[in-house]
């Protein structure tokens, strides 16, 4: 589970293994600080998030992000809209999506949707929404422009909402 989490963010097996190993080391050293207020899993994920942010900060200084044009273009999204700028097909009503947040299967679906995103798109989305890093810092760490950052986040959100609609909400509505 930890390795999968790290892989989704880092998309690099060696780096992901490093992050997990450092997490487990830190957990062993800090075991007495574990207050038992959360589950062990939640506690480990918390440590892993910090380790991943550290790794991103270290590696971004070594090499800037390689960003292919198709991830920063929005041309492929034109198909979602009619010529007058309205949606070609209406976004579905998701009912009460909050109930999904207590279901393990929902998060497995979200994970599969994240895996289908292009590498950098997934990475920026994870940094922003899973790690909660501010956009300025993401741009700086990855050495990309603010505009590219916003485009990647927009692409991620539009793709994820379509993926969740198809694979979760349409099935259960």
């Amino acid at each position: 589970m930890l390795l999968k989490f790290a892989m989704l963010q880092l998309r690099n097996q060696a780096q992901a293994e490093d992050a997990v190993q450092e997490t487990l080391m830190a957990a062993i050293q800090g075991a007495k600080n574990f207050a038992g207020k959360s589950s062990v899993r939640t506690w480990l994920v918390g440590i892993l998030k910090h380790k991943i942010v550290d790794l991103i900060r270290r590696s971004s200084r070594e090499r800037p992000l390689d960003l292919p044009d198709e991830e920063t273009s929005l041309e492929d999204f034109d198909a979602l809209y009619r010529e007058d700028g309205h949606y070609a097909s209406m976004p579905a009503e998701w009912g009460d999506p909050e109930t999904a947040l207590s279901q393990r299967r929902f998060f497995e679906t979200l994970e599969r949707c994240l895996e289908r995103l292009p590498k950098n798109t997934a990475r920026v989305f994870m940094m922003r929404e899973v790690m909660g890093i501010e956009t300025d810092e993401i741009c700086k760490e990855l050495a990309i422009t603010a505009t590219n950052c916003w485009v990647l986040l927009y692409r991620a959100r539009m793709s994820l909402r379509a993926c969740l609609e198809e694979r979760w909400f349409a099935i259960r509505a």
């Binding site: 909050e98 393990r104 994820l160």
Partner: peptide, 22 residues
């Protein structure tokens, strides 16, 4: 839906069991 995605991502990887702690 974008706001919901933010709440879902913050809770990722989600609960260990259905209805469990997230």
């Amino acid at each position: 839906q974008f706001r919901f995605l933010r709440r879902a991502a913050l809770r990722y990887p989600g609960p260990e069991r259905d209805g469990g702690e997230s």
